[in-house]
Computed example of a mutant assay.
Amino acid sequence: MNKSESKYFNTALRMNEALIALLETKDLEYITVKEICHQAGVNRSTFYLHYETIADLVNETLEMIHRRFLSYFPQQEEDVLGNMSSREREELVLVTREYLLPYLRFIKDNKKVYRAAFRNPSSMQAYAQYRELKQHILGPILERFEIPAAHRPYYIAYYVEGIAAIIKEWLQQGCTDEVEMIADIIESCVRPRGGSHGK
């Protein structure tokens, strides 16, 4: 990366972070280019050098968040998810600890992003990060349990909304509880183990 590319990248990153900070306190439709520029410490001409509209900045910010999210999964996808088709049905749970721990660490390290996402669900695609969970974990497991395809979206909605509610509560507490504790709670909600809380 040469000096000019580096400067461009750093300015774009500042505007991404400025947008996230503003979204914590305001809905997207009330955020102005002027406020973004003030928060990022740049002038309006710099904003328009990078983007045509605020929507372009939102899209770039979501892409940055997604790349950051994937970086929390150092293993190959197959290692994280295990081989769904070769596991015994009894071993399958709808949310695996191998997936939960990096996911929850990402949320804890990016509290601002998630608070903004819950505050502005439509503009920040609050459930966008559940795409991998739905596609790679919940869908294949429900298929293995021979849940009819027409029923699967309802099962998935139930689990995703439940996990989202736990995460929202954790964020309201400032993510002060340990990641492992939150993973235990989610796992016990998905598959109760009777008396093994906090193990």
Results as ranks from 00 to 15, higher is better:
M1K: 12
K3G: 09
K7G: 11
Y8S: 07
F9N: 10
N10F: 15
T11W: 12
A12S: 14
R14H: 11
M15I: 08
N16S: 10
A18T: 14
L22F: 08
E24H: 10
D27G: 13
L28F: 12
E29R: 15
E29K: 15
I31T: 14
S45T: 06
Y48F: 04
H50I: 00
E52G: 03
E52I: 02
T53L: 01
V58D: 01
V58S: 01
N59Q: 04
E60A: 07
T61M: 00
M64K: 07
H66S: 04
R67S: 09
R67V: 09
L70W: 12
S71L: 09
S71A: 09
F73D: 07
P74I: 13
Q75F: 14
E77M: 09
E77H: 10
D79Q: 14
V80S: 08
V80T: 15
V80A: 05
V80R: 13
G82Q: 09
G82E: 13
M84D: 14
M84L: 15
M84C: 15
S85E: 10
E90Y: 04
L92R: 05
V93Y: 04
L94N: 14
L94D: 14
L94C: 12
R97Y: 11
R97Q: 14
E98L: 06
E98V: 03
Y99Q: 15
L100F: 11
L101F: 05
L101C: 05
L104G: 06
L104V: 05
R105T: 12
R105D: 12
F106H: 12
I107A: 02
D109V: 02
N110Q: 09
K111R: 05
K112R: 09
K112T: 07
K112V: 07
Y114H: 13
R115G: 07
A117D: 06
F118M: 10
R119G: 02
S123H: 06
Q125K: 04
Y127L: 03
A128P: 01
H136F: 00
H136C: 00
L142F: 00
F145Y: 01
I147R: 01
P148Y: 02
H151P: 01
H151E: 07
R152G: 04
I156S: 06
Y158V: 14
Y158Q: 08
Y159D: 08
V160T: 10
E161P: 04
A165Q: 10
A165S: 15
I166W: 05
I167R: 04
I167W: 05
K168V: 08
E169R: 14
L171G: 10
L171E: 07
M181S: 06
D184C: 04
I185L: 08
I185Q: 05
E187P: 02
C189S: 04
G194P: 00
S196A: 06
S196Y: 06
H197E: 01
